[in-house]
Each structure stands twice: as structure tokens, then as C-alpha cells.
Nucleic acid binder design. Sequence first.
DNA 1: GATGAATGAGTCTTCATTCAT
DNA 2: GATGAATGAAGACTCATTCAT
Lengths: 197, 197, 197, 197
Amino acid sequence: MLSTVDGSFMSSPEAPALRADARRNRARILESGAAVFAERGASASTEEVAARAGVAIGTVFRHFPTKKDLLQAIIKDLLERLTDEVNALASEGDPATALFTFFGRMVREAAEKKTVADLLAADMGAGIQVAGPVQTLQEAIGTLLTGARHAGAVREDVRLDEVLALLTATCQGALSAGWDPDLRRRTLAIVFDGLRP
Amino acid sequence: MLSTVDGSFMSSPEAPALRADARRNRARILESGAAVFAERGASASTEEVAARAGVAIGTVFRHFPTKKDLLQAIIKDLLERLTDEVNALASEGDPATALFTFFGRMVREAAEKKTVADLLAADMGAGIQVAGPVQTLQEAIGTLLTGARHAGAVREDVRLDEVLALLTATCQGALSAGWDPDLRRRTLAIVFDGLRP
Amino acid sequence: MLSTVDGSFMSSPEAPALRADARRNRARILESGAAVFAERGASASTEEVAARAGVAIGTVFRHFPTKKDLLQAIIKDLLERLTDEVNALASEGDPATALFTFFGRMVREAAEKKTVADLLAADMGAGIQVAGPVQTLQEAIGTLLTGARHAGAVREDVRLDEVLALLTATCQGALSAGWDPDLRRRTLAIVFDGLRP
Amino acid sequence: MLSTVDGSFMSSPEAPALRADARRNRARILESGAAVFAERGASASTEEVAARAGVAIGTVFRHFPTKKDLLQAIIKDLLERLTDEVNALASEGDPATALFTFFGRMVREAAEKKTVADLLAADMGAGIQVAGPVQTLQEAIGTLLTGARHAGAVREDVRLDEVLALLTATCQGALSAGWDPDLRRRTLAIVFDGLRP
DNA sequence: GATGAATGAGTCTTCATTCAT
DNA sequence: GATGAATGAAGACTCATTCAT
């Protein structure tokens, strides 16, 4: 993946201009947070995130005043990275396969890193708000879908919300059940078959 | 549904006979536990389960020495009920549609009652062991699949583990995303299409 | 069972019927809380209150779900006790001296036990609500004042709010400065002189 | 008021000369500290003092190595200002009214600015030492008292410690109860009446 | 000197679990 | 067996204080 975690050289203009060490810590906290929450679920302790990031607990709370803020930031980060991937596929790849490629990649990552859908699922309920980034990602996937339809790789009557539903479902399934590569391939083959004309 | 919640007259032979009120309490705890954990997730407090069951907290722990035991019992209960449903479909229904019927019913319930997959997903990770009942359910579903294949309703090369993977995935997806009936129908249509010859 | 359900034969009607040991603990927590907060101020730790009461921290929070609740209960308790005293004086004592007697007693206790005014002052700001009990106490003192005026012991134009202001002020002063008995006597003598015709 | 806030040109001889900006910062910290602690009580955070002073937290701790030091400095400052006021009244004003004038002014300020007595009361307990400045102020007030006695405005048997006790008490009372001007006038009228022959 | 990020002990609060009643 | 009070280990969060930049 090309994007940097800390967004160091292109931080958004209104950001408070963090010191180099602070930026480094922020990035490490996000990273360890993603790992810890993916492994242990959203109820893992902030202390463990701090420990894995190699900082004191206070540092985590300085960067993210609330556990919810931390969770939200991790998810946002993840969503942005996914959106970047989708956009790259949309501009480079073959429209007939780009959607399936992204779909497969996302499910594989969910199974391997146990990150994406768990966070999306486990915590949405807790009032976490990431509406903006989610919509951006969805629109990007919509572009892939349109391309695939035009290329005749996907049925004309398939709508975006079904695709998103299938994507979310398979990510969560792969995640919680730990699909091995072969099972993943066979399961997705069925879904992809269902999408084709 | 025919199964009893408390399993009163078929408890394992060596278990000491429960007093009538104890049996009643056990059943009510399982029931309220299913409701509470489905609504609030597995991190809901045991106290709340007790309150909704109308018993004191001590009573819950007398029946289930550990929260994990309670969760396990609830899941087991659920699995047994599902197995009964599958078996009923297998012996009565049309083999060509039975699998799809069960699939659709389970996803609908997940979406409506937020029970099945949430428990299965959220807590499997915590070391809960329900291997036996799960296998029983899986075998029952296997029967449905075989019937469907023989009836020509499902492709010959589709294996049970893919079907289970798709079932789990869509249940979780429906659950966490709250699919409305129309979205559920369209999403499952794609999956079913993928399963057909 | 022959014993009564709550075991308490004279608790106030709407009270939740505490067990004997719980009632004992509740009382001890209120007592140690009054002492600790008076000594160390309202920012003393709940842990210390628990320790002095000889219970675990959880017990304090079972009885008073919030630190604020604890503070409020202590103050209410105090106010009720004071109101009782005032009422006793109003019905028994000499109207010409009852007000002065109560005034002096309250200031002496403030100086000795460092309780009354500190709590009243330190915590009122934190959103603690004891409006009811406070008003009850004030009305009781009002009765004393009326009696004293009728007896010619206090000037006709002295109103209740001034008396309360002087009472609060001297309590706080005695409390924070630790007036010794002699200083207290001389200081109150001046105030009482100011109140007389 | 004549005293400078920063005490720049009269700092103790051995203290290293502060840079102009450092002197300015010290003054602003004292000022914002007085405001913040008066508003929020002594448990307000040092961070807030820094923010209101427009400096970083490190700067506060460079000037006052400990929160206690900061509190102590604020109180000292306050006491010195009060002493100046008393001295001015002692040398200029009418001895018969000077004491009452000062008394009334101090109580009014307490009620309005919530500063004086709060700090004096709330923090004395925490081991803050300002014995020297306090004694200086007390002696200055003693001069006012002597003048008032000689002028026949105050009873011969009234001693300084009672006057100070009444002053402290009414300041605290006015402060915590927020006496309005009318109540303040009536309450002080009673106290003054008690002091007169 | 100023800055503000990092530290970590301390505080409030929750909750699974135990046990006296 | 049922009750619900007590326990105490965690967990989220705060804040005085230190120190690298």
C-alpha cells in the first residue's frame, strides 16, 4: 500500500502541526490499535494498545481523548486506505475484473489481518461516526461496479447496495471463521458466479 | 418450535434432578440471556440477564458457574433449535427448495432478532466450545445440501463448507448492517444464483 | 420462613429494605465519608472513605453509585440531623435563647467536627442538589427567629436571610480557621449583640 | 491599586534578573491563576491556568516548580495588595470609618470576584505557607482597629482576633453563598452594630 | 527561556465472582 | 436453593510533573 499511516508529508491543512515525535507516536498508536482491536475485539484495553505502541497510557489519551476517538480514527484510516486502493484499481485496471479483484483482496485481508470488517461491524453500534469516509469508499466501489457492468462482467440489474452487502458479509464471515485460502476461493467463486450475467 | 428451552425431561442421566423452580429459573435465564446478549452484545452484564429473568444474580451463577458457561449454554440451545428446524425441513419439505428456505429463514431471523450469528461470531473467539452441537447442525444442513444437489437445484461441485461459509457470512452481514427485507431478498438472490447449476 | 422479608421493622416506607449488614455498612460509609471529606475536602478519594469504613471500594459504589451521590447523601444526612435539633429546640426551649443556643452549637460543631459548612460550601458548586432538606432546615430556623423576635431577644427588623448568612459565614469561618472556644465565644458575642434590640 | 502584579523592580536581591518576556509571563500566570482558581476552586488544572495565560504548561512549571508554589504565590500577591489597601486607608481616611470601609470592601470583592477567602480557606489546609504576608496584613488591620477604637467607633473590649474572625467568616460566607448587595448590606449592618459601643 | 509531548501514579467506576444470610 | 451484599481486579480517563525539541 502506498499511503503512509501518519500522513506526514501531506497532513490536512487545518491539522495542528504535530512535532515529529508526536507524529511518529500517533502513527504507532493507530497501527498497534488496529492490530490489538482486530485480535482481541473492540473491548481490548487501551493499556494494551499503549504497550504495543511502546508509549505510556497517557500518550494514547493525549492523541485520542477517548477510546471511541481512537476506534474512530483507526476505522477512518482503514477506510481511507481502502478508498485509495479502489481508486487505483478504477483508474488502472481492467474494468471487467477490477471489482472482483478488489472484492477478493478485501476478503483476503479480512481473513489475514482480521481488521476491516471486525472494526466496521463491532463498533458501528457504539455510536462511532465515520459516515463521511464510509460514503467515499462506497462511491469509489460504485465506480468499479459501473465499470464492471459496462464491461459485461456483472449483470445489469445488480445494484450497489447488494454488492456492498455481500462484501461486508463475506469480510465478516472470513474474519470470524478464519477461512483458509481454498475455502475463500470457492466461496467467492459462488458469489461472483451469482453476480455474472 | 417444538424444543423445550430447559430440556427438563431429557437432562443427562447423572445430573441431579432439579427442583421445579430451579428448572423454571434455568429456562428463564437462558431465555433472557439470549435476548440481552443479542441486544447488547456479549459484553452485556450478567446482572442485566438476571434482572430480565427476574432472579437474583446469585441464581444465575448457581446455574452457570461462569459467564462463559452461560454464553455456551445459550449458543448450544440455539444450535439445537436450529438443528430441529433443519431436520424438520429435511423430512418434510421439497429437497429442491429446502436448503434455500432454511438459508433465507436463518438470515431473516438474524436480521430481525439479532441473535444467531452475533453469538456465534462474537464469542467463538473467547474460547467457547460448542463443537458437538455445531457439528450436529452442520451435518443436518449437509443433508439439505445433498437433497438439493440430487434434485438438481444446486451445482454438483458445491461443497458443504462453502454453503456454511456463505450462511455464516450473510447472517453476520444481515445482523450488523440491518438489511431490510428488500435488500435481503436481492442479496440472497445473488448467492442462490451462484449456487445453482 | 418466619423472619420478615426485609428484616427491618422501622425503615422508612419507601426504602428498599436493606439487609442488616448492608444497613450497617451504609451507615458506616456515611460516617466515614463525613469524616474524610471534612478533613481532606471534597476531593478526597472514595477509596479512603471505603478504607476508613472498613469495606471494599465496590461496597461504597453499590450504596452510592456515584461520588456525587455519596456527597449528597452525607449532606442530606447532616441537614436532617440539624433540622431535628432545631425542631427540638423550638418545641422545648426558651424562645428568647433558642436561636442563640442553636447558632452557638452549630458553630461549635463546625469548629470541632469540621463538617457542616465545609460540605455545604465546597460542594454546592458541583451541582449537588439538596434543595429540599436545605429549605426544611431554613424554615425550622425561621421558627426559632420568630420566637426570638416575639420574646424581644432579637430586633424586629432582622430578617431570616441575614441570620442564615451570618450562620453560614461563622460556621465556615470557624471551620477553616479553627476558632478556639474563647475566640468563638467573643466572636459570636459581637454577632449576637448586633442582633439584639 | 499601587502594587505591581509582577513585582518586577522589587524582586528579592539574589534572584537572577528575569528577561522581559519571562517577567511578563510570570505576571500573566499569576493573574490567570487567580482567576481560574477563584472560578473553579483550587482543584482546577494547571493546564487551564496556562491556557488562560496564553503560555505553554512548561512555562508555568518553570516559574512555579509546583502547583503548591503557584497557589502560594497567588495568595501572597493577594495579601500584599490587601495590605497596601489597608495602609492607604490607615494613612488617609477617617479612623472612625476606615475599618468598616475596608471590611465592607473586602466582603464585596469576595462576593464579586470570588477570590480572597476562597484561596485563603480552600488551600490553607494543604500546607501552604504564607505566614509572613498574612501577619503583615493582620497588623495593618490592627492599626485600623486601634484607630477606630480611639475614635469611639468600636467598643474598647473588641480585640483584633475577633475582627479578623468576623472578616474571614463574612468573606467566605459572601463568597460561597453569593450574597447580593442588599443582603450584604443588611448582614454587615448587624456585625457593625455588634462592634459599636 | 519557551514549548508541548510523554510519563505514570491516582481516581472513578464497572462487573464477574464469592459467600453470608 | 435463592438472595443480594461484598469483594477486588480491571479499565477509562485526568493531571502534576519531567524533559526532549
